[in-house]
Nucleic acid binder design. Structure first.
Lengths: 189, 189
DNA sequence: GTCTATAGGATGATAGAC
DNA sequence: GTCTATCATCCTATAGAC
């Protein structure tokens, strides 16, 4: 039975939720703290009662996004081993590209992270290693070695990141279908 | 025999070269026009004699980067069919991740493009389709269908984009090696 | 803890001399 | 076409009332 969250933590969560959505859709530099706080129904002056800087917010947003990521959702709903097919088709879906549900931070934040400070890159690295661990050890028997997990992650993230940059629906459809169709071939030893 | 370039076009090329390097390394929003013009050894007031806006500069930079991309370089140096192995190992090299040579815009600009205007996304889309066409029709016999070309592109771009966001050299090494090792499996029909 | 107000700095874009 | 100077705006971060 969860204890009632303190009001401060509740507000912090609201800010983080807004930050995840906005950073994922428009990128770090295109989103101002005013935008985030407005989305969270607060004024921008209140921000610094919860975070020390915009950079720190971004780092925390990476972790927050991880908890709601598609992979975490699938993990939560599954009993026993995860289906790799389910992961692949969810990850490479048009809804994920369009961010109709809470997106994977590894794809959404791959964009900004290279330009962030060390702590933020550490956060990204940590989340990536977590994804590899899950693919390697929590899935059904179809992933048998670490190289399969690593290359599958690159294919999934690459497919989504490129799709988001494309402006032609036919090409996006082709690309997503090709990645879904070819993904199983990466898993052979 | 090429005609001597007019001075104006020479200056334009210098600006574009600086823009490609800086945008690729630090991203659209983290680079100011002052930064670009300073790198090109000009003052920022001169910018608007060559481009109408920063957005237009970015769009032109996507095309300019394509001409110096690793794939274009390999294409230029090759006689006859391109080696897919050579493309894969060049693309997924640490030097490409570190941008020691002129990077592929599909990886370097995947980061910013989703947040750009339609014309810029058109440019990215055009370059991507060009890459797929080259992989499909200009390489040795190892790529036999379009889905192979598309999924390989996603793996290459994903591998590089994620590597640039990571902060741990061991993980980067593992990831690049895994992608290189597994790439040929995507090409089987 | 949240608000309003503002400091302090950077930026995209323009004007006008040369 | 390139320069210097400047406008107008936006943004992160801080200060102080409540």
């Amino acid at each position: 039975m969860p204890w009632p969250e303190s009001r401060k933590q509740e507000t912090r969560r609201k800010i983080l939720k807004s930050a995840v959505t906005l950073f994922a859709k428009r990128g770090f530099n295109s989103v101002s703290l005013g935008d985030v706080m407005k989305d969270a129904k607060l004024t921008h002056g209140a921000f610094y009662a919860h975070f020390n800087s915009k950079q720190e917010l971004y780092k925390e947003a990476v972790y927050a996004a991880t908890e709601d990521s598609p992979l975490a959702e699938i993990l939560r709903k599954s009993e026993g081993a995860l289906s790799v097919d389910k992961i692949v088709s969810t990850y490479l879906s048009q809804d994920h590209v369009d961010q109709k549900f809470s997106p994977c931070p590894l794809a959404a934040f791959a964009t900004d992270t290279p330009n962030q400070n060390g702590e933020t890159k550490d956060a990204y690295t940590h989340v990536f290693q977590g994804m590899i661990d899950i693919l390697e050890s929590k899935t059904d028997g179809s992933i048998t070695d670490r190289q399969s997990a690593l290359s599958l992650a690159a294919l999934l993230i690459g497919g989504v990141v490129v799709s988001r940059a494309l402006n032609d629906q036919e090409t996006i459809d082709e690309l997503l279908a090709a990645c879904i169709s070819k993904a199983p071939q990466l898993l052979r030893q």
